[in-house]
């Protein structure tokens, strides 16, 4: 009985001490090696993603719109930004699960080639949109969809509050790529971020071969 009480007491004390030191140790490792951890997480995700099948979207050049949409949650192309060494799969839909695997597409916006706003959210992880703020006016963004290749040129960028919906206009006057991620992009803010870094790019070319 005495041994059992002693053992239980030892166990409880060690739980508290071990958790304290383990937390400090892991937190230190995380903050010292955050970039490496995020890089390899993104690498693993991209390996998973590159094995997924693309869904067929059907585009009508006459109507300048998709007549068969990609399936929700499925990949329909790749987004490439040479300036920041980015090449990621592009998915239709933007729920949290989809954003784990690549760049999402807000389903209430238009698709490349439809002549309207195309809204693409991405996490601010290493290997995803963590370098979005390095893009300047004139930088190129290429979307390779399964129905065509579209080239955009960065026109402007800004930081907005997440509630400023006017910064994400759904319009069809011109084809406008709107990419965004949580801001600040670095790790100095703890908890939920209420600002977004938004980059606007206008279409300068397309190819349907």
């Amino acid at each position: 009985m005495k041994t059992k009480k002693f053992t239980t007491k030892i166990f409880a004390i060690n739980i508290a001490i071990s958790f304290f030191f383990a937390s400090i140790f892991i937190t230190a490792i995380y903050f010292l090696g955050e970039e490496k951890i995020n890089y390899y997480s993104a690498l693993i995700n991209s390996l998973v993603v590159n094995n997924s099948n693309e869904t067929e979207a059907v585009y009508s050049k006459e109507a300048k719109r998709l007549i068969e949409l990609p399936s929700y949650g499925k990949r329909f192309g790749t987004i490439k930004i040479e300036k920041i060494d980015l090449s990621l799969p592009l998915y239709h839909g933007d729920n949290l699960k989809i954003l784990h695997y690549g760049i999402g597409h807000y389903a209430g916006s238009y698709f490349p080639g439809e002549g309207g706003s195309i809204i693409l959210p991405g996490h601010n992880n290493v290997g995803v949109f963590n370098r979005l703020d390095e893009l300047k006016k004139g930088d190129k963004v290429v979307i390779e969809a399964n129905y065509g290749v579209f080239t955009y040129e960065v026109d402007s960028y800004k930081v907005v509050k997440e509630t400023e919906l006017d910064a994400f206009p759904i319009q069809k006057d011109e084809e406008l790529l709107i990419m965004y991620t949580c801001y600040p992009i670095n790790r100095s803010v703890i908890g939920r971020k209420t600002e977004r870094y938004v980059v606007y790019a206008k279409k300068i070319g397309e190819s349907y071969e």
Binding site: H123, F168, R187
Partner: peptide, 25 residues
């Protein structure tokens, strides 16, 4: 389609804190 708010949460702090806590535990 899923009809939700237009602007999504695209940060990673919460999941990373959960990972730290889980590993420490």
């Amino acid at each position: 389609a899923e009809v939700t708010s237009l602007v999504k949460q695209t940060g990673t702090e919460r999941s990373n804190i959960a990972i730290i806590a889980g590993v420490a535990f």
